[in-house]
Nucleic acid binder design. Structure first.
Lengths: 217, 217
DNA sequence: CAGTGGTCTAGACCACTGG
DNA sequence: CAGTGGTCTAGACCACTGG
């Protein structure tokens, strides 16, 4: 259950009309629902539930008062090759390369590959506005992620605003849909001086952005 | 134009908020639209007006009982170069390469370039579903087109289903917005055995698909 | 019964359009 | 500049849920 509209009104210092407007937006997205005389409650939405509810690095940032931003660097449909073809199959994919910013500072360089047939509805503005896993029209059931460290190479250094050869965390995540089918492959590069992982779960952290990642200082 | 919200409010003896709610329902149905400081008006798809009203090759086909289809081959944001940079400027552009089909048979190979800032709202599905000029959020005021003939090269032959070295019509169109600013560059390749141009206008045919083009037999 | 969401009102301030 | 839509507020009445 959510707090009542009146409570939310006082909590957020907004009129009840404005609170309702916000709630109705969420209802349009099937995230919440209401019954007259009963109240608002979280909707049991099968699609986004599994992954969407979990804390992402960006939600963490938001709750810390840090403003997360995305900046799309590349957005292209192309044929999968190499590692991507191995994971997603030898098919057409959408590749999105983006820079994640925290308070205007780059903190992650992310490339996401998605089978083209699952990405045809996506615009460049879509992926700039929302995390990828909020945009998928299929249920995401889990993900596995590997974490490593390397020295930053080439243009990645410039994009992240760190010297060439700086240490970075390098992650790969494979996100799966029902039946264990891989539907997203992503690679993430984090400057090591700004970020560290906090891994405290035995099972893989199932969110698009590493849920165990934390900004330091 | 509709009466203003205030007028409607007094006319129907309802508060402005209620009037707005009703209008927003109609807007969701694309029946009306509004511009701040201007007013509410019946939605006649003003975007598509200037060019969209003109007969396109696809409308001609439809009226002939031929089923037009588009098949997107490439959809990528990239830096303009060469001819594209010369026409649109040295900027990021969206490049879309597509195959146009008539009753399942390829009849045109089209590449369209559009400045990225005018294309951020477009998905691959969008450009597959609709002609480009219906998707632009700015008024299109005109276009100039050149028509030539060459021999088909490389993969274009396979895509069009014609032998290597077959004759093709090769067109380039520059579509402009207000102030004569070029906002679309497109190149079209038509197998000569299936198509011919019918040019009967002194001024350039201002539609995305050549309005003077006709399928033969 | 007290508390809830559903609906509505009158009024306000703002950014914006067009003359 | 007066008029517009976009957004917000404080307050009201109602039908409804659940104890």
């Amino acid at each position: 259950m959510l707090p009542s509209e009146s409570e939310l009104s006082t909590t957020f210092d907004a009129s009840r009309v404005t609170i309702r407007k916000a709630l109705e937006v969420l209802r349009d997205e099937s995230l919440v629902d209401a019954r007259q005389g009963f109240g608002w409650y979280v909707a049991t939405d099968p699609i986004r539930q599994p992954l969407g509810r979990l804390a992402t690095i960006e939600e963490q940032m938001a709750s810390d008062g840090i403003k997360p931003e995305r900046q799309i660097l590349e957005f292209a449909f192309e044929r999968a090759k190499g590692r991507v073809a191995k994971v997603l199959g030898n098919i057409q994919v959408l590749r999105v390369k983006r820079l994640n910013l925290a308070d205007g500072e780059p903190f992650a360089l992310v490339t996401v590959w998605c089978p083209a047939n699952l990405a045809e509805h996506l615009s460049r503005a879509d992926v700039e506005r929302s995390p990828f896993y909020e945009l998928m029209n299929i249920p995401l059931t889990g993900a596995t992620q590997t974490i490593g460290a390397t020295l930053v190479e080439g243009e990645d250094a410039a994009l992240l605003g760190v010297p060439l050869g700086s240490p970075v965390l390098r992650c790969e995540r494979i996100t799966e849909s029902e039946g264990g089918k891989a539907v997203l492959l992503s690679q993430h590069v984090f400057p090591a001086h700004r970020t560290e992982f906090v891994v405290d779960l035995p099972h893989a952290a199932p969110s698009m952005a590493p849920s165990g990642l934390r900004l330091v200082e």
